[in-house]
């Protein structure tokens, strides 16, 4: 069985081709990334970029896999959550090739795909999932055939907090240098934790907007930037870790898995290792190459879904910018 998956939820247009196999399941993995010269991702600009580069990305992927498109069993596409204009480019391309080739179309949730590729790579069975990226901060675990949200951010995401702060104080772009986020690098020279930065954990939820405001205020007052970075990072990371520990104890699961772009942070990873040890759990960190947005994860999740008989008519395959992870029935687990 061979499945082609298309990812276009934010800054990456990715095409992945996978086959149903334990090892060497990736036949092709091509990613075209939109990198704005300044500021964050503008959805319109990103979608224009996707429309321009999409067909070429697809062609390269098919060439890499060395297959005739007719050999594909199904086309999978991320229909959400994400930025509308970006999602529509991927959806349009997927609907077109599915119709043209007469192949079934599989609707994939981007967040579910992050989890599924993580499970495939880390070989964990039933972990508490810590999903950290630019747009998402959520602690998720499988209960009764759904990835239920145990805790999430009530305002901005962790990646968004770090990126926005770095950008607004002039540390970025680039956001990541040698695999480290610039806020992590800046924090290394910090020497003290500042007072009066809000640590907000409400039950299982976190909130970062107040932290961002406190950090910007301190910056404008001329407080040492390294101390601000250190405080911001420690409070942000630790609030996520506290919620993760709670989910671990609440669900009584013995594994913890980190997915999403922020998972690449070595500082966070070290903290998670200590946390896992403290609570007697096994830790799996999805390697950066698979933790960031890519087409492989869409294709792989599409494969699991297709094997369970989930497909969608192309004319019904509309995008959903706010498609929550807990709205998807996980029938294959």
């Amino acid at each position: 069985m061979i499945i082609l998956g298309i990812e276009s939820t934010a800054h990456t247009f990715g095409v992945g081709i996978v086959r149903d196999s334990e090892e060497n399941f990736v036949l092709a993995d091509v990613r075209t990334k939109y990198e704005p010269k300044e500021g964050g991702i503008h959805p319109r600009e990103a979608s224009r970029f996707f429309a321009e580069k999409g067909p070429e990305t697809l062609r390269i992927a098919l060439g890499e896999a060395g297959i005739n498109p007719k050999e594909l069993n199904a086309i999978a596409v991320a229909l959400g959550p994400g930025m509308g204009p970006c999602l529509r480019v991927g959806a349009t391309i997927a609907r077109t090739i599915a119709s043209y080739l007469g192949k079934p179309l599989v609707p994939v949730n981007h967040a579910v795909a992050h989890i599924e590729i993580g499970l495939k790579i880390t070989k964990l069975k039933d972990p508490v999932v810590v999903y950290l990226s630019g747009g998402n901060t959520a602690i998720v675990a499988l209960v009764n055939k759904r990835y239920r949200v145990f805790g999430e951010t009530l305002d901005i995401a962790l990646g968004n907090l770090l990126d926005s702060f770095a950008r607004d104080v002039g540390l970025a772009p680039p956001y990541v240098v040698n695999g480290m986020h610039v806020v992590d690098i800046c924090a290394e020279k910090g020497s003290r934790i500042l007072n009066n930065f809000p640590y907000v954990v409400r039950g299982q939820d976190v909130s970062f907007s107040g932290l961002y405001t406190a950090a910007m205020k301190a910056f404008k007052k001329g407080v040492d930037i390294h101390d601000i970075c250190l405080t911001l990072r420690e409070i942000a990371y630790n609030s996520v870790l506290e919620v993760a520990a709670r989910a671990l104890m609440h669900t009584k699961k013995r594994e913890i898995m980190v997915v999403g772009g922020v998972a690449a942070s070595p500082v966070l990873r070290e903290k998670l290792e200590m946390l896992a040890k403290r609570y007697g759990a096994e830790l799996g960190v999805v390697p950066p190459n698979y933790a960031v947005d890519n087409g492989i994860m869409i294709a792989w999740t599409g494969l699991l879904m297709y094997k369970s008989g989930i497909t969608i008519e192309p004319r019904r395959a509309v995008v959903n910018q706010r498609w929550r992870v807990d709205e998807v029935d996980i029938v294959w687990r």
Partner: peptide, 12 residues
Amino acid sequence: NIRKMGRYVAER
């Protein structure tokens, strides 16, 4: 309102 602050809540 709090529930709608969560990410991607469809029924805002």
